[in-house]
Design a binder for these strands. Structure first.
Lengths: 216, 216
DNA sequence: CCTTGTGAATCGTTTCACAGCC
DNA sequence: GGCTGTGAAACGATTCACAAGG
């Protein structure tokens, strides 16, 4: 199975989200143009994204909602549940633990860890915060797939190292610091400060320009 | 001033972050290759990014740390403070309000709003939560630049509409829902569920592949 | 007729390679 | 010698446009 471009993966995941809404609404079929409108792209893009994996649509009619949703789940490997540990039980970690979208999209929080003794033993949404030092020992039992880093920037690299040492191969890093990991480990950065800076830039430029961007 | 590619803006903001660290450490000069290593890119990329705006470096020597930092601040418009309102005072909104990175990068939280009467009047890090209905009325006094949406996906569109009605032109949306805005309004999406799904995809594929990605 | 699936054309970004300069 | 600045080449992604099929 050839590697798909990340931008394509993102869009597919987004299509899936809308397909699931359509499923709940009882819709039967959907055209590429409608999916495109939801995700802010074009119908040709939707069809290209899908065409890599085969021909799922019916010409003149569109795609079967349920069928396409299931196919995308299979393509993306989202037809199973993923086990998540939260590293850092501060405000952000706590907020993430209770985030409802987690379970909705097939992710289960199976553990929470912190280095601060004051936080160890606290309960976050039914999960007891455990000492960070126990992460590697717990990993065998918990079998986590993904670590979410919710620690200060200064602790990000150390926490990433611990996660990797515990056998985790996918990290979602909320800290405003790039972390270095060995090859084969996947890291995604969610950097709020950076997003704000990009917004700030667009504010400073578009003031005059009057922004002729499409309404999407 | 011509519009720079978003990918370039992101990298510039990242270079700035590392330059500021170098400044604190008392470093005088830096070569493109070093900045590249920090941000996981190449020296040629760094030089291309900068060359759009002029020639700031000295051949054979590199860039002056303080000078380059200041130039990037000017380019990105980050040489002033931006005023942020937080819309949604739940767990996520609360966590964002206390996020220290905010002030560190030149963003000040000037207000917090919620529709839930139970949350109105609560204090978040020195900010009193106000009724969402008052947002438009407060906007003149607070002069907010950016709205951070920390509401459930189901409320995202309504909240975005309120923000736009209140005169905000830049939104950072943490809800797992795409929002539609009029042209000229900038929206950035921080979608944790989507990031997790991308990670999940990489887990399902790379298992066998053995990932020959660069160590960055 | 409407909508898919897809090769070809276009567009933008990244990488290469080297001349120019300190 | 070492590193910048930059045109040219390579690459990748998006858009176009149309043939094919329900």
């Amino acid at each position: 199975m050839k590697p798909i471009a990340e931008s394509s993966v993102r869009r597919l995941a987004l299509y899936l989200r809308y397909l699931e809404r359509f499923e709940r609404e009882g819709r039967r079929s959907v055209a590429s143009g409608e999916l495109a409108a939801c995700g802010g792209t074009t119908s040709a893009q939707v069809r290209k994204d899908l065409s890599v994996f085969g021909s799922f649509g019916k010409r003149g009619l569109g795609y079967d909602v349920g069928d396409l949703a299931q196919r995308i789940r299979t393509i993306l490997g989202l037809d199973r549940t993923f086990r998540v540990v939260i590293l850092g039980a501060g405000k952000i970690g706590g907020a993430l633990a209770q985030y409802h979208g987690f379970s909705r999209y097939g992710f289960t929080v199976v553990g929470a860890y912190d280095v601060d003794p004051a936080r160890i033993g606290q309960r976050l949404e039914g999960i007891t915060v455990r000492p960070m030092d126990e992460l590697a020992a717990d990993a065998g039992r918990l079998a986590p797939d993904i670590a979410v880093l919710a620690v200060p920037a200064s602790a990000a690299q150390d926490t990433a190292d611990r996660a990797v040492a515990a056998g985790l191969r996918a990290l979602l890093n909320f800290a405003a610091a790039t972390v270095q990991v060995p090859p084969g480990i996947e890291v995604r950065q969610v950097d709020m400060a950076l997003e704000l800076e990009v917004l700030a830039y667009s504010l400073t430029t578009s003031r005059a320009a009057g922004a002729r961007s499409r309404s999407a």
